[in-house]
Design a protein around this nucleic acid. Structure first.
Lengths: 185, 185
DNA sequence: AGGCTATCTTTTACAAGTGAAACACCTGTT
DNA sequence: AACAGGTGTTTCACTTGTAAAAGATAGCCT
């Protein structure tokens, strides 16, 4: 076994023990194979994807203890934070998921007694969904744990960096949301 | 319909037309409901998740044209950038996916003639996977398109901000990868 | 040699999401 | 009133991922 960092035994992307994160190793490899390519976007998008994947694994610990997946928690959270009933369609938009997915989640959450449905008096197509007391209590119990967990995950970064990062991600998100659907190459 | 931003018709999270991204609206709602909570982590983690989701939708356009999903492309890319054969286990580590998922993808990619398997001469448990010529050509054709697409997606951000963002995400990723498995709350 | 344990990969059973179609209902128009 | 077209929700068929177990092999230890 070598220590060149090109040995798979050194771990993903050959990042080895050299400084930098996994993505830096991947970018290094691509540049060696395709020296002409502008790998700039990878350093942002690759890292965002990787962070999201890691956070989703790590982050879900407090949620799992409550027997909730993240999409389920997002749905309950949407009801809690808006403070009023929402229709399935609104929930789909609010949680950025498909209508079909919301239907499935609602069935499960209803069976578990966390949400309730109510028919609309005027328009019989629409349903109104609200949290039960148990649902509200669950959200209120889980959210602080979840935030504490996330705070821990970010605690390695200096506070100033955290603020910068949040602001830059906000800028990026505005761009992406603005041109969502505009990019159709 | 009101214009208060609290109306679901204004869109997800009631972000309405006021400045800021979707996550800012969500955070605003949570603070109104739970004034005591430190919502700082949401502004980073929520945005990372949202960016990742948006990018995955938008980003996959050039890939889909090539008939590849992102996980499939990641697998082919791992073979291309390392420049040598990899075993299924190495591919799983390299692409951060489960062994079972890699098995499934390899079956499909083999049927499509993009990768080939070779038995190990000494250890008959392991397989060695390599790109076929067609596989290599496909990766080399798709990667520049993909990077161009990503460049477009990021083009709304000033270059200096992009560099800052990449660096901060790198810092965060080092933290997260370092304590991966350490956080078991 | 025989047996034990560890490792590499695949299989299996299942959970969850998706797009498209189906359904049920509303609303404006003639 | 009847219909055409639109909207809100669910269902269906399918794809993909996962965890756990199975299968196959290697290598050590006595």
């Amino acid at each position: 076994m070598t220590a060149t960092g090109n040995d798979p035994a050194n771990g993903p992307a050959g990042a080895g023990a050299r400084g930098g994160d996994t993505v830096a190793g991947v970018v290094r490899q691509w540049r060696a194979v395709h020296p002409g390519l502008d790998t700039g976007p990878m350093e942002i998008i690759g890292r965002i994807n990787r962070c999201a994947a890691l956070l989703q694994q790590a982050e879900d610990a407090p949620l799992r203890r409550a027997g909730l997946s993240r999409p389920e928690f997002d749905l309950l959270g949407a009801l809690r934070r808006t403070g009023h009933e929402l229709t399935p369609g609104e929930l789909a938009r609010e949680t950025f998921s498909s209508g079909a997915a919301v239907t499935k989640r609602l069935r499960q959450l209803t069976e578990r007694g966390l949400v309730e449905r109510r028919a609309d008096s005027r328009d019989r197509r629409v349903a109104h969904v609200r949290l039960t007391d148990a649902g509200r209590d669950l959200v209120d119990a889980v959210l602080p744990e979840q935030l504490g967990y996330e705070t821990d995950a970010l605690s390695g970064l200096p506070a100033a960096h955290r603020d910068d990062l949040a602001a830059l991600l906000g800028d990026l998100l505005v761009q992406l949301e603005g041109r969502l659907g505009g990019l159709r190459h």
